[in-house]
Amino acid sequence: MAIRSVLGLFNNEDTAADALDALNEAGFDQSEYEVLTGTPYPEGTFGEAEPVHKLYRFPLIGAACGFIVGLLLTSGTQLAFPLVTGGKPILSIPPMAIIMYEGTMLGAILFTVVGIIFESRLPRLLMGAYNTKITEGAIGVAVTTDETKVSQAEDVLRNAGAEDLKRGWETEQNR
């Protein structure tokens, strides 16, 4: 079944919150609607579901990868070319520690950035219903649902006091 989205625009936080309540009452699942804002609000301002993320796993995996790469690079290069310099041991641990440290941090940071993008569900190829007024302070309530329930959602939003209603296409993955 095709997935459609519809966006209602609200001018203040309270009506937007009311709209969310109304959607909830109308039997929409929490995964079917979301608030779009131009600025971060404290969590739960609109009574929306608290987002759950697993971002903290990414830097750990990244750090482990970076550490291993650093270890292999530093010990590997020294063992592959056992050239003596300045009487330092072939496996000089203090310099290895420095480079392994940088490798660990680089791995952690790269994975974190990937994690942020992944957990933010970006990049989003199809914008769906959107309104440029959101970045000017309006609050959007977007409902992403089956084609059959779209008009019902529109009604709920309109009754809650939406200024402007817009429809957009969605892909299955964006639901």
């Binding site: 070319f81 050239l83 003596v84 310099t85 300045g86 009487g87 330092k88």
Partner: peptide, 16 residues
């Protein structure tokens, strides 16, 4: 025997 110049070279241009 423990040359200070050697370990600081980044490209092993000098070694023992």
């Amino acid at each position: 025997g423990e040359a200070p110049c050697e370990p600081v070279c980044p490209v092993f241009a000098t070694y023992h």
